[in-house]
Simulated scan of single mutants.
Amino acid sequence: MRRSISIPLGIMAAGTAGLAYAAGVEVNVYRLRRFSIPLLAPEAQPLRILQLSDIHMVPGQRRKQAWLRSLADLAPDLVVNTGDNLSHPDAIPEVISTLEPLMALPGVFVLGSNDYYQASRLNPTKYLRPGDRSHAPRRKRAENDWPALQAAFTKAGWLDMTNTRASLDVPGHGALNFVGVDDPHVRRDRYPELHDDDGNSGGDDRRDGHGDHAGDGEGEQRDDALTIGVTHAPYVRVLDAMTTEGIPLILAGHTHGGQLCVPFYGALVTNCDLDRARAKGLHTHSAGGHTAHLHVSAGCGTSRYAPVRFACPPEASLITLLPRAS
Rank of each mutant, 00 (worst) to 15 (best):
L274V: 01
L226D: 04
R222I: 15
Q221V: 15
G266T: 07
T270H: 00
G229Q: 05
E218P: 05
L239R: 00
S286N: 04
E218S: 15
I247T: 10
A287Y: 05
V236M: 08
S201M: 06
G266R: 00
L251G: 01
E245A: 09
D205C: 06
A287E: 08
D273Q: 04
G211F: 08
L294T: 02
Y235N: 06
G257A: 13
L282I: 09
A277E: 15
D208C: 10
A233V: 03
C272T: 01
L274M: 06
T284F: 05
T255C: 00
G215N: 09
D197K: 11
D216A: 14
T291K: 01
H293E: 12
A267S: 13
D197H: 12
L268I: 15
D204T: 02
A277P: 02
G288K: 00
D197R: 12
L251Q: 01
S286C: 05
G288P: 02
T284E: 11
D198Q: 14
P234T: 03
P234V: 01
D223V: 15
I228H: 04
D196S: 03
G215D: 11
G211E: 07
R237F: 07
H210G: 13
R276W: 04
P234R: 00
N271Q: 14
A252S: 10
L294W: 07
T244D: 09
V262G: 06
A287F: 04
E218K: 13
D216R: 10
G202N: 07
H195Q: 12
E245M: 05
R207E: 14
R206C: 08
T284W: 02
D205F: 08
A292L: 03
